[in-house]
Design a protein around this nucleic acid. Structure first.
Length: 646
DNA sequence: TCTGGGGTCCTCGGGCCG
DNA sequence: TCTGCGGCCCGAGGACCC
C-alpha cells in the first residue's frame, strides 16, 4: 500500500487550506501529544467515489474478494485507475506524521502517546502542503504500525482526451412511465407513477406530468399520491416489458457502433469515434441516433455527445427531455463550470452538503479548491476524483463487458417483524429470492451477507464466508441464518436482505477430491450445480414492492404476469395495478384497480388500439387471465434471465 | 414525508501471519 | 521468545447510482 512519503525522511510541516482558511498543522515529530482530527460524525468514507466508480466493466487491478492483489481492495484500484501511465503507487517508506486543526473538526487523541503514531491515517486524513502546485511532489503524512496511511500520490495529471466529442450517452426520459404511456394510450398526457402500492413503497419513476406536481423518484408513494391529482395512475413496474424496450433503444446505438456500454436499463454509453469522420456533423449524428431510438422503441430519448463519459452524461441530462446536446472541447468549460456540484456523478446529498460547508456549490467553486482540501474533505479516492472531474478530466473508455460482483434480494415488510423466530422465518423467502438471482446468473457464491434494517432505520449487515464458492442452496441458506444470528434483532425489523458476494463461475472446479465432498456444506454436489431452473424474479426490484404488497407478504414472489409464461387464471390476490390481463370477450387490457369485493377494474387497450374502455370484471366468471406484457412492436415478450442485466 | 430494491465502490477496523 | 511492522484478508458501514 502506498502510504507516504517523505522520501527524504525529513519531517515537514504541512498545512491545509479549507475554505480559504489556511492553518498550519503540527509537525508531530515536535508535538508533545499528537492530535488527530476528523469531522464530527465522520464515519467511513467521506465523499462519493464519483468517477472512480464504474458501473460497467472491471477496474484495473480488480479482483474478486479473496483474491485482492493488494490491501484495501478498491482503494488501490481507484488510485491505479487514475494514475498516469508509468506512474507507480507510492509506497514503502514512512515519514513524519502530521495533523491539523480546523474549525469544525474534532481533535482526537490517538491514545498511544507515541509521537508519529496515528491510529488511522486513512480515516482521519491530513493534508499535504498545499502551497505546492498540483503537480509537485506531495509530502508526507502517514502513520506507523497498523495504520492505513493516506497516499498523497502525485496530483493527478490531465489525461489526453479525444479531440472531438465522440462519446455518446443516451438516456430514456422517465423510462418506466414512458413505456406505460406508450402501451396504454389512455395514460398519455396523464400523471403516471410507477412503483409499489404497499404502505412503504416508493416511486420508481414519475412521468413528466406527475413531476409537475412535485412527484419524484424515490419519494414515498403515498406522498406522491397526495401531491398528484386524482387522475393520477399508479402502476407496478413490468420489467419484462421494459427490457424489451431497452433492447430497442440499445439497438439504435449498436447500429452505429459495437462499443456500447449499457449503464442501466434506460441508459448507455457508446463510443462513436469509428463512425465519425473529419466532415461528420456531430449534431446531425446525435439527432440521427435519437430519432432512430425513438423509431425503434416509440419512446422519447435524450442524447449527449462529449469528449468523455463525464461530459456526455451531463450533456444528455442537459438535453432532456427528448433533445440532443453536443459539447465540444471549446464548450466544455462554459458548460461545466456553472453546473452545481450535485450534478456531478458521485456527488450525492451528503457530499454536496459537505462541499457546501466549504462554500463549494458549483463546479467552478470546486475547481478552485486545492487538491489538499478535497483530499481532506473527501478522502483519497473521493478527493482525487473531485479534483479531476472539476476539470473535466475523464478518460474512462467505453467498456462492453461487466463482471457481476454480487447478487441478492431484499424486502421491506409492510409491518415490522418482532422476535428472532419470526425474523428467522421471514428470512427464508428472501434467501429464496436471492438464490433465484444467483441461479439466473449461473454463479457460485462464497460470502453471504444478511442485511437487517431496524425500525429505527439503523441498518446492520452480518456476513459469513464459506471455505469455497458454492451453489448449494442448503449451505447458502444455512450461512444466511448463521449471519442473521450474529445480528442483534431485539428491535423490530422492517427489512431483511440477503446478498451473495465473492461470486465465482467455477464452483464445480472446487469440488474436493474424495469422499469429503458430501461432508462439506460449502461444496455443492454436481447435480445441484447444473440444471437449476432459473426462476424469473421480476418482482425483485422496484417492482417487487407493489407486486408483493398485493396479497400475502411474500418475498420473491414474482410480479404476476410480468414473468408469466402463458395465460394464468387471475385472482384478486395475484393482481396489481398495471399488470397485463385478458378476457376471451374483451381481449387484452391492464389492471386499473383491484376492488375489495374481488372484482377487477380493467381497461382494455394496447398501443395499437388507441384509448380503450374500462369496466369491472369478475375474474373467475369471466376467465380473466394474466398474460405476458407486450414489447414495443406489440408482440408479447417473455421474461428473460437478462431482464435486469443491464 | 418518512424513507424500495439491486447494485458498486470506498473506507476503516481488526485478526492473522511472516 | 517477544515485539514491531507490514501485507493480506475479512467484516462492517455507508454513499451513491438508477
Amino acid at each position: 500500500m502506498g502510504e507516504v512519503l517523505d522520501r527524504s525522511g525529513a519531517h515537514e510541516v504541512g498545512h491545509v487550506e479549507v475554505a480559504g482558511d489556511a492553518r498550519v498543522g503540527h509537525d508531530v515529530a515536535d508535538a508533545a501529544e499528537p492530535v488527530d482530527v476528523r469531522r464530527p460524525g465522520d464515519g467511513g468514507r467521506r465523499l462519493g467515489r464519483g468517477l472512480g466508480r464504474r458501473r460497467g466493466g472491471r477496474r484495473e487491478g480488480g479482483g474478486r474478494e479473496g483474491e485482492r492483489p493488494d490491501d484495501g481492495g478498491g482503494r488501490d484500484h481507484a488510485r491505479a485507475r487514475w494514475r498516469g501511465p508509468g506512474e507507480r503507487a507510492a509506497g514503502g517508506s514512512r515519514a513524519g506524521c502530521r495533523s491539523i486543526g480546523h474549525e469544525g473538526l474534532v481533535a482526537l487523541r490517538p491514545g498511544l502517546g507515541i509521537p508519529g503514531f496515528v491510529r488511522s491515517p486513512a480515516r482521519y486524513p491530513r493534508a499535504s502542503p498545499s502551497r505546492q502546485g498540483p503537480n509537485e511532489t506531495l509530502t508526507a503524512v502517514g502513520g506507523r504500525a497498523q495504520s492505513r496511511a493516506v497516499s498523497f500520490d502525485r496530483a493527478p495529471h490531465a489525461p489526453v482526451l479525444r479531440a472531438r466529442p465522440t462519446i455518446a450517452h443516451l438516456d430514456a426520459d422517465a423510462f418506466f412511465a414512458a413505456v406505460e404511456q406508450h402501451q396504454r394510450p389512455s395514460l398519455r398526457g396523464r400523471p403516471v407513477l410507477v412503483g409499489g402500492v404497499g404502505p412503504r413503497s416508493v416511486v420508481a419513476t414519475a412521468s413528466y406530468e406527475a413531476r409537475q406536481y412535485g412527484a419524484r423518484s424515490a419519494m414515498p408513494m403515498e406522498q406522491a399520491r397526495r401531491l398528484c391529482p386524482p387522475s393520477t395512475v399508479v402502476v407496478v413496474p413490468r420489467f419484462a416489458a421494459y427490457s424489451a424496450y431497452s433492447a430497442r433503444i440499445m439497438a439504435a446505438l449498436r447500429e452505429v457502433t459495437d462499443l456500447v456500454e449499457p449503464v442501466s436499463i434506460d441508459e448507455a454509453f457508446a463510443d462513436v469515434a469509428a463512425a465519425v469522420g473529419p466532415e461528420t456533423d456531430l449534431e446531425a449524428l446525435a439527432t440521427g441516433i435519437r430519432e432512430r431510438a425513438r423509431e425503434l422503441s416509440g419512446l422519447p430519448v435524450s442524447l449527449g455527445l462529449g469528449r468523455s463519459k463525464l461530459v456526455a452524461k451531463l450533456a444528455s441530462e442537459a438535453a432532456k427531455p427528448g433533445g440532443v446536446r453536443v459539447v465540444g472541447a471549446d464548450d466544455e468549460d462554459p458548460f461545466l463550470l456553472d453546473l452545481p456540484v450535485r450534478a456531478l456523478w458521485g456527488v450525492g446529498p451528503v457530499s454536496a452538503a459537505r462541499l457546501d460547508e466549504l462554500g463549494v456549490r458549483t463546479v467552478a467553486d470546486l475547481r478552485r479548491q486545492p487538491l489538499d482540501t478535497l483530499l481532506l474533505v473527501a478522502g483519497e479516492a473521493g478527493g482525487t476524483n473531485l479534483y479531476r472531474i472539476a476539470r473535466g478530466w475523464d478518460d474512462r473508455p467505453v467498456s462492453t463487458v461487466r463482471e457481476r460482483k454480487s447478487a441478492g434480494a431484499e424486502h421491506t415488510f409492510d409491518t415490522d417483524l418482532h422476535g428472532r423466530s419470526a425474523i428467522a422465518a421471514a428470512l427464508d423467502p428472501v434467501v429464496d429470492a436471492a438464490l433465484a438471482r444467483l441461479e439466473r446468473h449461473a454463479v457460485a457464491a462464497r460470502t453471504v451477507v444478511v442485511k437487517v434494517r431496524l425500525a429505527s432505520f439503523t441498518t446492520l449487515t452480518r456476513s459469513v464466508t464459506l471455505s469455497r464458492p458454492t451453489t448449494d442452496e442448503g449451505a447458502l441458506r444455512d450461512a444466511a441464518h448463521r449471519a442473521l444470528r450474529l445480528a442483534d434483532v431485539t428491535e423490530p425489523v422492517r427489512l431483511l436482505g440477503v446478498a451473495f458476494h465473492a461470486l465465482s463461475e467455477h464452483a464445480q472446479l472446487m469440488l474436493p477430491l474424495g469422499a469429503d465432498a458430501a461432508e462439506d456444506p460449502a461444496v455443492p454436489i454436481a447435480a445441484e450445480v447444473v440444471g437449476a431452473e432459473a426462476a424469473g424474479d421480476e418482482a425483485v426490484g422496484p417492482g417487487a414492492v407493489g407486486a408483493e404488497s398485493v396479497g400475502a407478504e411474500s418475498v420473491g414472489a414474482e410480479a404476476p404476469g410480468a414473468a408469466a409464461t402463458g395465460p394464468v387464471q387471475a385472482t384478486a390476490a395475484l393482481l396489481a395495478p398495471g399488470l397485463d390481463v385478458a378476457t376471451p370477450a374483451d381481449g387484452r387490457g391492464w389492471v386499473v384497480r383491484v376492488g375489495d369485493d374481488g372484482r377487477v377494474a380493467v381497461r382494455f387497450e394496447t398501443a395499437r388500439t388507441g384509448p380503450g374502455y374500462q369496466r369491472w370484471v369478475d375474474p373467475e366468471a369471466e376467465a380473466l387471465a394474466l398474460v405476458e406484457p407486450l414489447g414495443p412492436d406489440g408482440e408479447p415478450v417473455r421474461a428473460s434471465p437478462a431482464d435486469d442485466d443491464v
